[in-house]
Write a protein that binds this DNA or RNA. Structure first.
Lengths: 300, 300
DNA sequence: CACAATATGCTCAAAATGAGCATAACAAGG
DNA sequence: CCTTGTTATGCTCATTTTGAGCATATTGTG
């Protein structure tokens, strides 16, 4: 077994939700994701990243999960004489008393993906995007049909409907279609803010993973303060998913899953009737086999 | 940003189902997973692996997905003067006319994890495993409760019930408890066959991922021949999940998802009434936003 | 022809979901 | 004090989706 040599780099997608907005930790005034070397001293990749993030941001990382390892030749390889392997992680940071949102490094993630936020209805950028995609599809008559099918699927056009999980597919389609600055489109018409190298793609990967995960694992709580109202919780989920949810059904869902318990206190911040405060029941993780089957098991 | 140097290695968990048994491609008579260098010539990790597998096994890989990147200091690091980064992939191979199961490299995966196969009822090895875990828990009175809680959760003891997805958690618990040869236990009492370095852990990661994935993505079809009966399909899912399923409900599930269509032919291999043959409808992927939400969306 | 073995159709109760009405509890303005 | 705006919370009801199992259909075999 021959072994190749390479540079190894860790890249972090650190997410926090503050003031109902999902934010991501950046460097260089929002142009890049924080990244650092994989140092020999670290026991594992995970522990290395954990230490490093704590040191850089001052926030402890609650939840940390590996995202993806990239080593494409075509992208992000300024360094000569060796491949760069980028190992990316998704980390979730609790909302702080000193809100991370106030600090410079935290950027709202929809400034990079304005078409992903449907909370206030269909984003207007989509008109421009759809026009670009159609133009791209028609550029070569032979590929037209296939391209249109992919665009329809990813962006929920025509028959298809919007699927919030397809963040990465959408970004990659825009990249391929040259709609996005990183793939050579003019900066003026670029929908959403661009980032250094392939960092926007990595961010898209993180958002996609998180949107998928909140549906079957209680990871939202890693973004919440110690106690919260059910509406705050809902707003956080909505912020991540980029959708608005049905209030009563949302609370029914949360309550029936026994994920939270009342703290006994209430808060009256928002004007109306005071809301009960809840806390996350950590114990639930050991009690139940979360979600579980979805397969038609037979009991014989 | 300093950059660390490292060796990079690709490791593949290649899965096929033949004769109702899930198998994994191995080398060294079943002692290790196939692995190889990440060569500079490859465009991406994925394409590198794809070529390499095709060349090594003769089978084309249908589905290929990245599993995990490991770089632990404590495990699998015989090579001095540099860290090894192992990037693992999960690949699915269609059942062949020349069944891969007949070839030497393909090993039934339950020989490595006998406690994971519940198709014929509770595996007997579990008695030994549970005894070991209890002994391990009682070794230090102060950690007893926590250890028992983890064991109960992972292996579905006491209140908890068996969750087939927790393959990795179970293996890591056995590793930590020293029940498994790789962590120093005597080979005679080791439940399941051991593997080189941390390859059994990587295999556990692959099985866990696959078991989780078959529930929300139609990946089973990547393991099936071009046409198949619904019972064959069910047997494949059962083989992967290590569970038996309810026949009528399984077919209802498959049919309502419109994942398959009749070929028009039938087969009478198994004795009883001849079964209709089906093929996978590839088109379905583009038609519907598979699975989708699980969040209580509001339509305003 | 009876029987074993699998395929396939269908029913029925229980649970989960999607939508929305109704009421409760506060603040602010008249 | 009463009205209005605003959010919280309780509850209903139709529809769908599950979980379980009964019944019938088609084969090959002895």
């Amino acid at each position: 077994m021959t072994i190749g040599f390479a540079h190894a780099e860790l890249i972090a997608v650190l997410v926090a939700v503050t003031g109902g907005e999902p934010r991501v930790m950046t460097i260089r005034a929002g142009d890049a994701l924080p990244s650092g070397p994989f140092e020999m001293g670290h026991r594992t990749l995970q522990s290395g990243l954990r230490e490093w993030v704590q040191e850089q941001t001052g926030h402890p990382v609650g939840y940390l999960e590996q995202l993806y390892t990239f080593a494409d030749r075509d992208r992000n390889n300024e360094i000569r004489g060796g491949r760069t392997i980028s190992i990316s992680y998704l980390g979730l940071v609790h909302e702080q008393a000193t809100p991370g949102g106030g600090r410079p490094g935290w950027q709202g993630w929809y400034s990079y993906f304005p078409w992903e936020d449907w909370r206030t209805g269909r984003p207007v950028v989509l008109d421009h995007i759809v026009a670009c995609l159609i133009a791209w599809a028609e550029r070569y008559p032979s590929r037209r049909e296939d391209r249109m099918r992919r665009a329809n699927f990813a962006f929920g056009l025509g028959e298809a409907s919007w699927n919030e999980d397809l963040v990465l597919q959408r970004y990659e389609l825009l990249y391929e279609a040259g709609v996005v600055t990183e793939s050579g489109c003019a900066a003026e018409t670029n929908p959403g803010r661009a980032m250094f190298a392939d960092h926007r793609r990595i961010l898209a990967t993180g958002i996609a993973r998180l949107r998928a995960k909140i549906k079957y694992r209680p990871v939202v709580f890693e973004l919440m303060p110690a106690s919260f109202t059910l509406l705050q919780l809902q707003r956080s989920v909505e912020a991540l998913a980029g959708l608005t949810l049905h209030k009563q059904n949302f609370r029914r869902l949360i309550e029936q899953q026994e994920l939270v318990e009342e703290t006994g206190e209430t808060t009256s911040e928002t004007g109306g009737r005071p809301a009960k405060l809840f806390r996350y029941r950590h114990a639930i993780l050991e009690e139940r086999a979360l979600a579980g089957s979805r397969l038609p098991i037979s009991r014989n």
